[in-house]
Write a protein that binds this DNA or RNA. Structure first.
Lengths: 361, 361
DNA sequence: CTGTTAGCGCCTTCAG
DNA sequence: CTGAAGGCGCTAACAG
């Protein structure tokens, strides 16, 4: 027993399918009140549910928003996803989810799949990469996106424009001032921290990571300090953990050697990495902020109860997700192309970078 | 410039649409090697992307899996979502996301929307509720789901069967032994904890919460202990926080009064609540496990670095998500109806419930 | 093995 | 204000 169709409803109501369509789905004006009522009753009694596929085919639009993330279980992405979901709801659309682990080729496939489903818009949340190994992948992805745009699709990007994209009018980007915020963080830390600085960065070429590293260095410089050493690792917790392990050894050596060894200040380019690094230090018997200061970036909600409270840069993740959804021409003007929406964050210093009594050693 | 269609590809290749369809999309056997090649080239050069809506309409199936969660930013749900996503990928399907805050009426709407899109299956991850205020909502939801099943849809449910559902063959449930696991947790805690027990439960009527509370009480009983007092609060962090605040006051009073006041052991019915409660205690100057022991449930990954490490019951969340996706008849047998897949968890005792040196006070 | 003919369910001109 | 007709892009029975 398949779901009932519009035609069945129309027959039951004794009207034509066209009329039924007009009353049940948004048309100019609902026909004669009495007729309309009859149709609605018929629909009700049959438990009629319009076939969105058919509607989409006929109108060539789907009410779908495609969302691409690296990993939906990563709190950074799930926070953004919440925002996207909220925006989708406001637009009376649904969210189609794709996870790609950041692989350009998977992303391309996701875009193609979204295009196949005639998604009204696509939101790409993952950080862009310009690693050598991703060169070709990026090009193909850009081509796919361009085509999607040319066919009338809208794409929203969090953070950076898509590398190599060239359909100017289709892209909408939420610009996160990663570099500036990282610089500010560095300056604020430099104001009272007087030991060395170390950065735990993600893989070189990951734009978000690169921006934050660059910004941090710039901040140090503007505070009259030399650039920090940069450790490279994975952009996730385990990356932070590994780097943390390496740093822990170094710290311990330093402590046992010169008694004047200064306390290290570690900046991990995102909170999850920072937590990993902190866990590593702890596992080596070191304590924060006593033996080292540490700061992250993002201000992940789930991590706010972490102790010592993590210094970080607060990003309005949910808002970012909401803003990343392009406004498709539903009512008024045609969607303006090439939009850039700026958001801002806030340096948030907490316990993990507090100064400690000098006489620790 | 709309995307190119199969007909265009066929024309360019000099064959009929049917033939083109056969080679480009999965049919019995790809026609003549030479023809096939020609078609593929044509498709390539046009950048042809099949219109999934049209395919769906023709085949009446969509390659979509609907996922319903309370909140995608909640780590419990995002972990499950990751599993669902993985299963979807294996089935070459995409995930449609809906978030409902647990409101039966929103859930009903989501089911209807999924049905409209002809989702091949629907996964409901949120806890069921039998609160009085949800009675009617549940009934309507059940009706909607039943209808969806009758029309050939498959539904997978995490935890409990849908309240009031009655299309036996369509439902597939991943059975989480919440009650048994909570009982085991209680027994293990009772083995070495000798103070009072308190439970921070979610709203009465939330099945998952109820099960865990009941199980915990049963475990205490089997250990020869009286039942624990149960505090009711929201099923989220702030619920745990509020309850924690109340408990903190109580603990402090107890400590200042009789010197023999025993240490409380708090069981919050999920990790997020436990973290909230712990934060509350801390904000009142209390320390864990010194002033109170605390345990949660779920073993949320992001929370594993929390200190003191939280005792909890490990649930294979991602696996649960993966298992919750009904296997639709893609290759072999018709999907077996009314399946119940059991999963299991594991009591995991950590620092937050450790015994402390007696002479704390 | 390929081409032709019908729809899938709906929306949207166009007549009446 | 309503009904009839055509088509959205594709697949699935039939013919040839």
């Amino acid at each position: 027993m398949a779901a009932s169709t519009l035609t069945e409803v129309a027959r039951l109501a004794g009207v034509s399918p066209a009329t039924a369509s007009r009353v049940l789905n948004g048309s100019a004006r609902t026909p004669g009140p009495d007729i309309a009522d009859r149709v609605r009753k018929a629909a009700e009694s049959l438990g009629y549910i319009p076939n969105a596929q058919a509607q989409g085919l006929a109108k060539s639009s789907s009410g779908l928003i495609g969302l691409i993330v690296h990993d939906i279980a990563d709190p950074y992405f799930s926070a953004i996803a919440r925002g996207v979901q909220a925006a989708a709801r406001d637009q009376h659309k649904m969210v189609l989810l794709a996870t790609t682990a950041g692989t350009p080729d998977d992303e391309r496939a996701a875009v193609a799949a979204f295009a196949a489903r005639r998604a009204d818009s696509i939101v790409i949340a993952g950080s862009r990469s310009i690693r050598q190994q991703d060169r070709e992948g990026n090009a193909v992805l850009a081509a796919e996106l361009d085509r999607y745009c040319r066919n009338g699709g809208r794409v929203g990007v969090v953070g950076h424009p898509v590398v190599g994209a060239s359909a100017p009018e289709g892209y909408h980007v939420v610009a996160v001032p990663n570099e500036d915020l990282a610089a500010e963080l560095a300056r604020e830390l430099a104001a009272f921290h007087n030991g060395d600085f170390v950065v735990i960065g993600g893989p070189q070429g990951l734009l978000t990571s690169d921006d934050r590293v660059r910004g941090f260095q710039r901040g140090l410089e503007s505070a009259g300090l030399p650039p920090a050493e940069v450790l490279r690792s994975g952009f996730d917790r385990s990356g932070g953990y590994e780097a943390g392990l390496a740093l822990a050894k170094r710290i311990k050596v330093g402590q046992s050697a010169a008694s004047g060894a200064s306390r290290l200040c570690i900046f991990a380019v995102n909170d999850v990495m920072a937590i990993g690094a902190a866990a590593a230090l702890r596992s080596e018997g070191l304590r924060i902020p006593r033996d080292a200061a540490i700061a992250g970036f993002d201000d992940i909600e789930t991590l706010r109860d972490f102790r010592p409270a993590l210094s970080t840069v607060r990003l309005p993740l949910e808002e970012i997700g909401r803003l990343a959804v392009p406004v498709t021409a539903t009512g008024g003007q045609a969607p303006d192309g090439g939009t850039v929406v700026p958001v801002t964050g806030q340096v948030t210093l907490r316990r993990s970078t507090e100064a400690v009594a000098e006489a620790a050693a």
